[in-house]
Design a protein around this nucleic acid. Structure first.
Lengths: 143, 143
DNA sequence: GTAACTGCAAAACTTTTGCAACCAG
DNA sequence: CTGGTTGCAAAAGTTTTGCAGTTAC
């Protein structure tokens, strides 16, 4: 059992984005930001919470994911039209999508995909500005 | 009322991809391929059918969209994690997504987005091959 | 104390499925 | 005829909502 002191680093982190450091948010933040980059769905995070002995409802997991995303702590990745994926890596980067398994992986940062974003603006319809450019490289097992 | 002769061009088109030219598929094909490129959802196509006086069930619209997609007549576009969009333009191209309205538009063909796809392969994980590269340029109203 | 947050179950949506009736060949 | 297709309603899967009860501060 992790000791979640009111004034822990994680609690301050949440407060800094105007989210009360509640028991549930602290626990979920621990699962998400504890160890390296991850890609989760609401369901997978909920399962992970259950496994870790964290008591939290699925609705609260959805709430937390959206609140964290709105606060800039997470980024939503759109690769599947039936499930929402969230990425703990928020810097501008792009993804591999494994069609066979439904898994996601970051494209190594040295790939120059980011350069593409710079190309786009010239062709924007009038009155529109860039929100972001998402690139998904879909892969399948080689035959 | 359009006269859908059994041996019409549209009927042959469907037969050529091993789909029986049924009343419903012919009618939906007429709505989809009649006039220029479009982006539809199951619901929007169903509504358009109703408006046009075509009697067809929503389940059949879903079936037809997937069958047309499997046959290469349509292409699925993934830009929203809650709805499936289908594009009547099947050539390799990319999309603008208007976050404010949820609408989709093709990025003009002279944009060099396709060139980006060619950059990717070098970094593929072992044993994987490219299915396709999807680029979505997300736009919002300029403030 | 009080406003924010949580949990639960129900509702809302999109999409799929099961199966009897129907129709193209 | 006969198997592929359709329609309907029911089911399934994901996400949202309403609200009473709980908690952070």
């Amino acid at each position: 059992m992790v000791d979640m002191k009111t004034n822990s680093k994680a609690a301050e982190h949440l407060r800094s984005v105007n989210l009360r450091p509640t028991r549930q948010r602290l626990a979920l933040a621990g699962l998400l930001f504890g160890q390296g980059d991850q890609h989760v769905t609401a369901e997978s995070l909920y399962d992970k919470a259950q496994t870790s002995g964290i008591k939290v409802s699925l609705a609260t997991v959805y709430n937390a994911l959206h609140q964290f995303t709105a606060a800039g702590l997470l980024r939503q990745v759109i690769v599947d039209s039936s499930r929402s994926y969230f990425d703990t890596k928020i810097e501008n980067h792009h993804h591999f999508y494994f069609e066979d398994t439904g898994e996601i992986a970051d494209i190594p940062g040295d790939w120059d995909g980011n350069r593409i974003a710079a190309i786009a603006p010239a062709n924007f319809p009038a009155g529109m500005e860039l929100s972001r450019v998402d690139i998904v490289v879909r892969l399948r097992r080689a035959e």
